[in-house]
Every structure is written in structure tokens, then in C-alpha cells.
Design a protein around this nucleic acid. Structure first.
Length: 496
RNA sequence: GCCCCCAUCGUCUAGAGGCCCAGGACGCAACCCUUUCAAGGUUAAGACCGGAGUUCGAAUCUCCGUGGGGGCACCA
């Protein structure tokens, strides 16, 4: 149905007003997938026309997150391109010029109403339980009078003149034709007192000038969709293909993520902000796979790399219904993609987390440890719990944990002592040399492996849960193993 | 209040009139493997929002309810 042979120009147009989040990332992903699939271009454009809401650093965070995710854009504020500038505040003359074109052609008009008056009008309409809308005062002004007031230096904005009769039909690739009675439409502001445009003007002008062929955006834009097509038509421009993506709901499925839920999520080790996800130890591959499948269905085989997604991507499989966020599924995809990484790659990604946790990481050592912990990791951050003890001189086991199930302190000390003798007698402690004699010991003492190995595990690693014991001991090294065992025996003796 | 969008297991979804007493994935439960924790393997439970149509036949089409979501700014 959709033609993927024509190179698409798809754009991601965020406003730098806060942290870059999941919804934005998924919008970027779908734009990126379409661009790649068609051999087209992916463009980043910063919609920074709201000076009051612009947050310092937000712009950089957007670009950093996009790069980190691997969603690299062909054109953008920092990389340039043939249709720049890609920052809307640097294009203000273009918008003023286009607003004037609309006024001249009778599709827009200057409005002198003050915010105070507009607020009063709104309140009265609410009181009468009417839909709030601009009352059209300045729409009725004659061009001459408007020109005179402007010449007088009166402050004004530009409003788009929406048709009042009939209906507007806008076409969305996922939802088909959307028909709205024009009487329900409002005369929106397109140019503000500060001379900057609102989204409605800026985005339409830029999409046209930048030759955008497909617009993927959140469904929160559906309300202003008819406005946008009317603006395009007023200019006499062709429309891009529109796709309004579903929104994400909080995990309960009730409403969008609020500040409250966002704060709760981070306590649980999750976030909706990409930067946080990175710090939490999620990897781009896992994150991308997870977000792609929220609102996009694949029949079977849902572990996907970015290349797989490009290959399988299709507009027909996008789902217009809102999707609840499911962090458990993110864990699954993240773990799965971690296991897909090469040892070298995974080690390199784990290193910063260990370093940050205070471990003095030796690369060669880390390379030996990585295969041991790989299948246990859900996030990179989990590596600290599994591998931290390898990088410590000494460990501090909880004395109670040194006592095996079914045994008392004295018996446990005895087991530890016998183990010590066996391990000390080995010319070279490694997995192959240590396991057979230790298994013999288990038999001889008529205990189960769990009991014996459990004591050694806690003594050597300092924790009840660890990577496989014999491999771990081999890496820790005979000297340290014996030293730690000796200390454990002393602890147990004191308890006995 | 008004406008718009949406509706399959708890969640994400496959399904485009007969291939469906509805398939996959996550989660959950059981079992296997096992030195812990994982990973892996096998099995189980679990859904077409309701009602009218259309049709020989509907999860799939139409209408009406209901439910959910989004929007109604000199924000995007």
C-alpha cells in the first residue's frame, strides 16, 4: 500500500523544554526507520520558539540521546544541511514573511486583543458552558483600520482565518479521513507579539521549505490537525503524509505519565527519560526494541535490532490505540540484547558502571569476568552486584550467611577447614582442578553440594548470590581464595 | 461542557468475512536442568467491551451504547 521506493524526508521536531523522553524517542525511531527504509533522510529540527519554556541544556540532551540511541540524523542544528538553519529561532524572518503572505492573501489577520480581554472572554464562555474559542472581534476589522492601528504602533498578533462554513477533511495514514465541522474550529494565533511564530505556522512553513514528505508526530496533535492542513492549503502547498502516533499511558493504563509516576518509576529503577535510562544501565538496543513494539505489531520473532526494524518496518502495522508502558518487558528486552553482545563490547559497556561504583577495573580481568555474568544481567548496572567482589582486596561476608542450611557454626567451620586443606593442596587452583576434589568432599561428608559450596561461595565472594563458584575462584586466584577462606573459618570459630 | 481519536489475554500485539472453539511476546504458575542467582527447555492458566444489524458465515463490515485516551493557550 505505502510506497517505500521513494526516498522519504522525515523529521523529528522536538522543543527543548525539558528532558528527552520515551514518546519523543519513539517518534524519532519511526521517522528514522522510514527514512532508512526508503533510502531517504532523517532530519532534526529544534522547535525552540517558546522562549519562556526553553530549558538550557535540553537541546544538547536531545542530540546526545538521539546519538546514544543510534538514531543519527542526516540534517540538524549541529550537522547542518541544505535546508538550514534547523533551529526555529534562527528562522524568524522566514515566518514573519510567511505570516504576512497569509495576511495579504486574506487567510490571516492582525489581532489587537489583549491577553486580559481574551481571558475574560474565555471565562464568560466557560460560565455559559460553551466551547472556549476566540470571539472573532478583530476578524471583523477592515484591512484599512487594521493597517492604521499597526501604523500607530499598536501591539498585535496574527491569527489564522479558519473557514466558518462547511467541513475540513484531513487524511491520516493510520486513521483515514478525519472530518471536522469548521464551525468547531478556532482562529488560532500563528505569530506572537514577540514576532516569533507558534508551532502551527512554524512547523508548516518548515516542513514545506525542508521538503518533508512524511510527518510522524504524537496524537496530541490531532486536535490541531485541521488547522495545519488549512494553513497548508492557504499557502497552496502540497501536504506531507501524516501519521499520528499513539501516546504512551502509565503502566496502570490510566492516563499519561505524570511527574508523580515519573518520580515513582525512578525509585523502581526505571524512568521515561532517555538520559536516566542510560544511567540506569539500559542499552540502546534493548530500549529501541522495547519502544518499537509499543504501538507496532510483529506477528512473531520480536527480538529486533535496528537493522531488523528497518527491514520489517511498515506503516500498516502501526497501532493508533494508546499503549500502556510495561517496564517488565523492557527488562526482558534489555537482558536479551545484553546477551547478544560480544564479550568485548559488553565489557566495554560495563566498565563505566563498575568504575563509578568505585571498582578499580583491570581490562584483562574484566574480559574474563564478563562471560560469567552476562546471562545474569538485566541492566549494565547489575554488574556491580555480580562482579564487584572481583575488584576488592577483601570481602566482608555476613557471618550468619557463612553457616550452611542444616548445619551449625561449628559444622560449617569444619567444612570450611576441610575445603581449605583441599584447595591449599592444589598446585594450581582453577575450575578443572578444584571441582573434582571438592565434589569428593561433598560425598565424603554426606552433605549436599548446596551446603558445602554455599559456605565457600559466601566466604570467597562475600555474598550468597554470585557467578558460578569454581570459575569465580579461578579468577579471584588461589592466594586470595585461601586468605578469604581462612578469615571465614575464624569468623565461624568465633560463632561456634 | 464541546470536539476528535481508539477498543483482541493483566500488558504489548497477530488477525484485513470462512484458514480462529483466536496465534506470538512479556509477566504469572508448574516442571526439567542446576553449587547460588540467572540463562535455557517443556507445559499450564489467560482475551475478541455490550447490543442491534449486514451475511450462508463476523474478532474482522455498519449503527447505537459503554469504556479508555487526547485536545479545547500569544505551549509545543
Amino acid at each position: 500500500m505505502t510506497d517505500y521506493t521513494q526516498p522519504a524526508r522525515a523529521r523529528m521536531a522536538p522543543s527543548p523544554t525539558g528532558h528527552f523522553h520515551l514518546g519523543g524517542a519513539r517518534t524519532a525511531l519511526f521517522n528514522y526507520l522510514l527514512a532508512c527504509k526508503t533510502g531517504g533522510k532523517f532530519i532534526l529540527r529544534l522547535e525552540d520558539t517558546d522562549l519562556k519554556r526553553t530549558v538550557p541544556g535540553a537541546e544538547q540532551e536531545i542530540m546526545d540521546s538521539l546519538h546514544w540511541l543510534g538514531l543519527n540524523y542526516d540534517e540538524g542544528p549541529d550537522v547542518g544541511g541544505p535546508y538550514g538553519p534547523y533551529r526555529q529561532t534562527e528562522r524568524r524572518d522566514i515566518y514573519a514573511q510567511h505570516a504576512k503572505m497569509l495576511v495579504d492573501s486574506g487567510h490571516a489577520y492582525p489581532c489587537f486583543c489583549t491577553p486580559d480581554r481574551l481571558e475574560k472572554v474565555r471565562q464568560e464562555q466557560q460560565k455559559r458552558k460553551e466551547t472556549t474559542h476566540y470571539d472573532g472581534t478583530c476578524r471583523k476589522l477592515s484591512p484599512d483600520e487594521a493597517a492604521r492601528r499597526i501604523a500607530n504602533g499598536e501591539k498585535h498578533i496574527i491569527r489564522f482565518k479558519m473557514p466558518q462554513e462547511g467541513a475540513t477533511t484531513a487524511h491520516d495514514l493510520l486513521r483515514g479521513n478525519i472530518v471536522i465541522e469548521n464551525k468547531n474550529l478556532d482562529d488560532s494565533v500563528i505569530l506572537k507579539t514577540d514576532g516569533l511564530p507558534t508551532y502551527h505556522l512554524a512547523a508548516m512553513v518548515d516542513d514545506h521549505l525542508m521538503k518533508i514528505t512524511h510527518v510522524f508526530r504524537g496524537s496530541e496533535w490531532l486536535g490541531t490537525f485541521p488547522l495545519h492542513v488549512n494553513i497548508l492549503r492557504a499557502f497552496g502547498w502540497d501536504e506531507p503524509k501524516w501519521v499520528h502516533l499513539s501516546v504512551f499511558l502509565k503502566p496502570s493504563g490510566k492516563g499519561k505519565m505524570s511527574k508523580r509516576e515519573t518520580a515513582d518509576a525512578i525509585k523502581d529503577g526505571y524512568s521515561i527519560f532517555i538520559k536516566d535510562m542510560q544511567d540506569l544501565g539500559f542499552i540502546p538496543e534493548g530500549l529501541l526494541n522495547w519502544m518499537a513494539l509499543m504501538g507496532w505489531g510483529i506477528a512473531e520473532g520480536d527480538v529486533l535490532t535496528l537493522d531488523d526494524m528497518i527491514e520489517k518496518f511498515s506503516l500498516e502495522h502501526l497501532n493508533p490505540a494508546p499503549a500502556a508502558i510495561n517496564f517488565a518487558k523492557l527488562d526482558h528486552f534489555n537482558g536479551t540484547h545484553i546477551r547478544l553482545l560480544s564479550t568485548e563490547d559488553l565489557a566495554a559497556r560495563i566498565k563505566p558502571f563498575l568504575t563509578k561504583a568505585g571498582c578499580n577495573v583491570d581490562d584483562a580481568l574484566l574480559l574474563r569476568i564478563t562471560p560469567l555474568i552476562r546471562e545474569r544481567l538485566v541492566t549494565l548496572d547489575d554488574s556491580i552486584g555480580f562482579a564487584g567482589f572481583f575488584f576488592k582486596e577483601t570481602v566482608e561476608p555476613n557471618p550468619a550467611e557463612l553457616i550452611a542450611k542444616g548445619l551449625d557454626a561449628k559444622q560449617s567451620a569444619d567444612v570450611a577447614r576441610k575445603s581449605y586443606e583441599i584447595l591449599a593442596a592444589l598446585p594450581n587452583l582453577n575450575h578443572a582442578s578444584a571441582e573434582p576434589p571438592m565434589r569428593e568432599l561433598v560425598e565424603k561428608l554426606a552433605l549436599n553440594p548446596n551446603q558445602v559450596f554455599g559456605i565457600i561461595r559466601v566466604a570467597v565472594t562475600g555474598q550468597k548470590i554470585s557467578p558460578p563458584l569454581f570459575e569465580s575462584m579461578e579468577i579471584v586466584g588461589q592466594a586470595k581464595v585461601l586468605e578469604r577462606l581462612k578469615k571465614a573459618i575464624e569468623t565461624l570459630d568465633k560463632l561456634a
